[in-house]
Simulated scan of single mutants.
Amino acid sequence: MSWDETDMAILRVVQQDATLGAGAVGRAVGLSQPAVWRRLQRLREAGVIAGRRVDLDVEKLGFGVTVFLGVKLATKGRVSLEDFERACMSIPEVQTVQHVLGLYDYRLRVVARDLSDFERVLRRRIMTLPGVGNVEANVLLSEERRPGPI
């Protein structure tokens, strides 16, 4: 399927605030509510809109440290990638698991209350995962939200 400029405008609006109804989106892009509703349905059915999510402020929830971990598997042949990914996702502090190409096999985004809490998660949970070899940690100092590619 191809997407026109109106579809792209609708996607920009809902990307900023997925809670908006079709009427509010229509006012933002200059279309009627029914026209926007039909376009949103088409975008959902095509899989362009895969869901909705809520961005939580992890600092306000008490998680003051975010760390990006590069993980190199020690024994790729002996541990399936799916098993490693599933084990990572069972750790509540792990927000994302990304299989990447480069120096490391995986990139994990981990949140913790403070550095000692992160150390506990690293030692007791992440380093005990099947197949973990080398790990490199990068502590997030600041983050700017950038708009998506649309």
Rank of each mutant, 00 (worst) to 15 (best):
V110T: 03
A35L: 08
L81N: 14
F68L: 11
L69P: 02
P149E: 14
K76L: 11
S32L: 08
V100P: 00
S80F: 06
M89T: 09
V135W: 09
A50P: 00
L73E: 02
Q41Y: 05
P149A: 14
R107P: 00
Q16V: 05
E136Q: 13
H99S: 15
L20W: 12
V139R: 10
G133P: 03
R53A: 15
E93G: 01
L40G: 04
N138D: 12
E82V: 14
R125F: 06
G70N: 00
D57T: 02
P34S: 01
D83L: 13
L122T: 06
R39F: 02
D117L: 01
V67L: 07
C88S: 13
L20Y: 08
F118T: 14
S142P: 02
T75D: 11
E5G: 00
T75N: 10
D17C: 04
Q16F: 03
N138T: 10
A35K: 12
T128H: 03
D57K: 01
L129G: 01
R12W: 01
V58E: 03
V54S: 10
S80C: 02
R124C: 11
R113Q: 14
L140V: 09
E82N: 13
P34R: 03
R109W: 03
T66D: 13
T19M: 07
E85R: 09
E136L: 12
V139A: 05
I49E: 03
M8Q: 08
R39N: 05
L69A: 07
D117A: 10
R53S: 15
Q15F: 11
R39Y: 02
R38Y: 11
V97G: 07
A28D: 01
V100K: 01
V132E: 00
L69D: 04
R125S: 14
R120D: 13
S32E: 05
L69F: 09
L56T: 06
T96S: 15
E59I: 10
L20H: 09
R86H: 09
I49M: 05
E82Q: 13
R12G: 04
D4E: 06
G62W: 12
A9E: 11
G64M: 06
K60W: 06
V67A: 12
V58W: 06
L69Q: 07
T6P: 03
V94T: 04
A112D: 04
E85C: 09
L141H: 10
L56W: 10
R109D: 10
S142L: 07
E93Q: 13
D4N: 14
V14G: 09
V121K: 01
R107K: 11
